[in-house]
Amino acid sequence: MCGRFSLTLPSDAMAQLFQAVPANALPEGPNYNICPTNQVHAVHLVDGTRRLVSMRWGFLPQWYKTENGGPLLINARAETIADKPAFKSACRTRRCLIPASGFYEWTKDEKGNRLPWYTYPTQGPILAFAGIWQDWERDGVAHRTCAIVTTAAGDKMSALHHRQPVTLDPDQWPLWLGEAGHGAARLMTAAPDRTLALYRVDPKVNSNRATGADLIEPLIP
């Protein structure tokens, strides 16, 4: 799964990297501890143009009567995304890219303590998570919301968790965004192990209130 991530690249650099037009209001950065329900950067198509916008991380189906009207949907499983009522329309017509500098996952020691690990890209400055998005509005409250697509973990990540986010290379972005026709479903696989590296970080990141660049520094035994 993906339950926490970081983003350190400035918005203007992301706009250039994704060749996207940036919105006026984007989340402040850098952010070393992005949590569910936070606003995140996302790239999607608007009238054929890539736009870098802000979305709420936590997909809200249109039938939710309140923001807490059902389970918090931060991830969408690749294997069932096309069939789940909450996701099936979005996966066909509303796909996006969610930039990340890296993401966190946890293991446990023999005492049950949560041990955080940080995973980051070995190729390129950023990860692009495959995402889906949905507009939601009730009683004058409106959100553009998103979820990260996950798949079965590859060999490297499986030591930490049985799921991992789908990450896409630049040459795959046009197909996922819908610029290059049909066939995006074949992209929903685990990234090659060589494209990801990981290391332990300090347990302070276990708190969703923790901040600062030291959250992604390697833990010195």
Score class of each variant (00 low, 15 high):
residue 190 A to F: 02
residue 174 P to Y: 13
residue 169 D to K: 13
residue 175 L to H: 09
residue 145 T to D: 05
residue 117 W to H: 15
residue 210 A to K: 13
residue 133 W to S: 01
residue 25 A to P: 06
residue 145 T to I: 05
residue 7 L to P: 02
residue 77 R to H: 07
residue 82 A to L: 05
residue 81 I to V: 04
residue 60 L to P: 03
residue 24 N to H: 15
residue 129 F to G: 07
residue 120 Y to E: 02
residue 172 Q to V: 06
residue 180 A to N: 15
residue 159 A to I: 03
residue 183 G to D: 14
residue 174 P to T: 15
residue 6 S to K: 00
residue 103 F to R: 05
residue 86 A to K: 09
residue 110 E to L: 14
residue 212 G to H: 13
residue 45 L to V: 09
residue 180 A to S: 15
residue 101 S to F: 05
residue 112 G to F: 12
residue 208 N to D: 10
residue 174 P to C: 10
residue 102 G to V: 00
residue 34 I to K: 00
residue 114 R to E: 14
residue 191 A to D: 07
residue 121 P to T: 02
residue 132 I to L: 10
residue 174 P to V: 13
residue 138 R to H: 09
residue 129 F to K: 04
residue 83 D to T: 15
residue 116 P to A: 14
residue 7 L to M: 11
residue 193 D to G: 02
residue 13 A to K: 06
residue 6 S to P: 06
residue 198 L to E: 11
residue 163 R to V: 00
residue 221 P to I: 06
residue 213 A to C: 04
residue 165 P to I: 00
residue 25 A to G: 09
residue 113 N to I: 00
residue 61 P to R: 10
residue 11 S to P: 05
residue 29 G to R: 11
residue 172 Q to A: 09
residue 18 F to V: 07
residue 149 V to M: 02
residue 58 G to C: 06
residue 97 L to F: 04
residue 143 H to F: 14
residue 14 M to I: 05
residue 185 A to M: 10
residue 125 P to Q: 14
residue 170 P to M: 12
residue 162 H to K: 03
residue 146 C to A: 02
